[in-house]
Design a protein around this nucleic acid. Structure first.
Lengths: 198, 198
DNA sequence: CTAAATCGAGCGAACATTCAATCTAACCCT
DNA sequence: AGGGTTAGATTGAATGTTCGCTCGATTTAG
């Protein structure tokens, strides 16, 4: 993301401030319950400035969708590059989600709890986007190479993604008192027992 | 649910019609995007009738919450009564969710995809309600009796519930072409391998 | 006859969006 | 360097619409 204004010190780019405020409010109160006035206040800009950078409210959500999916995709590509087999790749993805849940909870909320179709009807369901295709691909390759049991890759993905995100969700809802990395070993063991051959 | 009016033939109870219409609309378009006018039209009643039976829009959602959680709780109680060990109980719950997803998709949508906190702030998160407590209890007992591996019951529940609901979600999103019972065996095998001792 | 049920026009508030005015800063010409 | 020009950035009051909800009138049923 390139800054096209000379602001380097103190003050921030209004566009970034708006996106930051919107992400926080959308994930906390929901898209519908967040008004432009709320964003205006949280981002410390005027209504006009918001409409200078974004066509309308939906376009803000759309930009967030784009940004977040892009960065998730990048992270997963990086993981696939650094780790050679399915075991290591999947484990790294669980670590990524657990870390993000603690360090950038709004990002994980945006991915796993927000219902995008309700306000971004032109976007496909998340399960059809690139990072999720990558996941199924990892499963498929894992099955082909014999690292993962012979099961329908879609069931394997569901077990992996469902278990992982359920843990994130419980943490975000305040049900889990301890940080997620405390549960990492148990979570990974459970997932891998489900997928490992033999 | 007791009917307190003599309507037995043709016409339906307005209250039930309103709830049915609201469930359909809330799960399809979201609570915020559903107006009273929408419900009015779908249920074939007037605005006044809606407000005769419900204090406000939120009260409609609240009644749905109550009804659906109650019936889910009853089903799970029934399952616990009929099945004695964790293996059978959990398997029956997966069957229940898969069957409901096909036969009453709106009910499952209400349970797994709707963000209740956004419009029912006084309700606890689902994970703290009775049917979910029952689930953790089944896990705990299973661990105690040695039917389930020695793992944190919360991780076991997350694996079970996360995998199951992810399959339901993929089906509801139209990603899975085949009916869920086609995946039942694979899904259950994956879950049970994660939880079984030894 | 009466009490509950049903109706829908209308009220007021909230909201997304527009726009004319003002401000800022970079650039140009002398 | 300094004054002048301009395009982009910023402002917030005004606008039109949507929506939840009220209420007095009308119908229904026991």
């Amino acid at each position: 993301m390139v800054t096209n204004s000379p602001q380097v010190n103190g003050k921030k780019e209004p566009k970034e401030e708006i996106l930051k405020a919107a992400l926080e409010l959308f994930t906390e109160k929901g898209y519908c319950n967040t008004s432009i006035a709320d964003i205006r206040q949280e981002a410390n800009v005027s209504t006009g400035t918001i409409y200078h950078y974004f066509k309308n409210k939906e376009a803000i959500a759309d930009a967030l969708f784009e940004d977040i999916l892009q960065s998730l995709n990048d992270s997963i590509k990086e993981i696939k590059r650094k780790n050679k087999n399915a075991f290591e790749q999947l484990r790294a993805i669980v670590e990524l989600f657990f870390t993000l849940t603690e360090d950038a909870p709004d990002v994980i909320r945006f991915i796993i709890t927000i219902r995008h179709q309700e306000f971004l009807p032109s976007r496909p369901p998340l399960s059809l986007t690139q990072p999720f295709q990558s996941l199924t691909q990892i499963m498929q390759e894992g099955v082909n190479k014999g690292e993962i049991r012979q099961i329908d890759p879609v069931v394997a993905s569901a077990c992996f993604y469902g278990t992982m995100t359920r843990m994130c969700q419980l943490r975000l809802e305040g049900v889990l008192q301890k940080q997620l990395d405390w549960y990492l070993l148990d979570t990974w063991t459970v997932i891998w027992r489900a997928l490992a051959p033999g």
